[in-house]
Design a protein around this nucleic acid. Structure first.
Lengths: 168, 168
DNA sequence: GTCATCGGGTTATGATATAACGCCATTCCC
DNA sequence: GGGAATGGCGTTATATCATAACCCGATGAC
């Protein structure tokens, strides 16, 4: 938890992010009748250890360490499936990794700005992008179910830094 | 090669697609001084067996069969890396699979409409989508290097069919 | 001819994800 | 409350996707 490589890029109190995310998850699941079990909540917390997408096996390791005994991959994947279904976590396809959603419950399908240098990933929901995809698909007779937009590049911080921190 | 599950959705002469793709690859590589070796060319042909993204291991199996002896994964991955670098093939991140580019040489980064029913994947290059992403990122100070847009949904054919063909 | 470079073979391994089966706790119905 | 249905999760095994490390032969530069 005090591993500096897990800290987010700019100085912000990340514990707030985590606490907020958990609180939102609690109330959202409660309002939906979805069961945010202890395990699922712990996995959500582990996803939120940073603003970088984390691989399932990284989460698995953390979980194993917390429990003092090795956990099985399925344990983590099932929890992640639940969290993704509830919109609490997004899967970043191009990284095979998972990142916490900062604004769940808004029924959005976001777009992701993935920094190739520090790994930090910002979720946005830009109406112009959303509508351009919707219209572009419609013009070709294609019915959109799930748009995936993942933009690799450099975040503002890393553009001004020579060689920034490593990814976890 | 005559496996019907590999045929593209609508009746079109797919052998033309393949022949065209190979011809374009030949001239493009020649003009660039890139070496489209026999192996790479064969892998490109196997990617083009359908308009569905194909997994590296599916290609590997085809290749092994053609050669009468098992090929190694690296063989295929190296060829695919080359083809992707040359823009002859695109990787579909959300499927961990590869699909032929119908218009290489245009220096585009396309968007992909992936049918969840039949698997056929159409590559488009919609300026509105491209520009919306460029502007949306710029507005947040993010420098785009590689935009990835993969839209899952239903192609026109599959919207009018009850339960269409399977994916290979 | 000699060297550098590159394509590709070989073997091993790492990383990501799911299948199949079963137990147990909760919940729901009556 | 009793019993059945459901869902969460443990266990073991396996599938799928991708790369590391090493070597060798062909090609082209000089």
């Amino acid at each position: 938890m005090t591993d500096p490589s897990l800290a987010p890029a700019s100085g912000h109190d990340h514990s707030h992010c985590v606490a907020d995310a958990l609180a939102r998850a609690d109330s959202l699941c409660a309002s939906r009748g979805a069961r945010l079990t202890a395990l699922r909540r712990r996995v959500l917390e582990l996803v939120w250890r940073s603003h970088r997408p984390r691989g399932a096996y990284a989460i698995l390791e953390d979980l194993s360490q917390q429990e003092g005994k090795p956990a099985a991959p399925l344990t983590v994947y099932r929890a992640l499936d639940f969290l993704v279904e509830q919109g609490l976590v997004h899967r970043i396809e191009s990284l095979n990794a998972y990142v916490g959603c900062p604004a769940p419950g808004l029924a959005h399908t976001g777009q992701f700005l993935v920094c190739e240098s520090c790994g930090n990933t910002e979720e946005i929901d830009d109406p112009r992008i959303r509508e351009a995809i919707r219209d572009g698909a419609a013009a070709r007779g294609f019915r959109v179910r799930l748009p995936t937009v993942e933009v690799r590049g450099l975040c503002p911080d890393c553009q001004s830094r020579p060689r920034p921190e490593t990814t976890p």
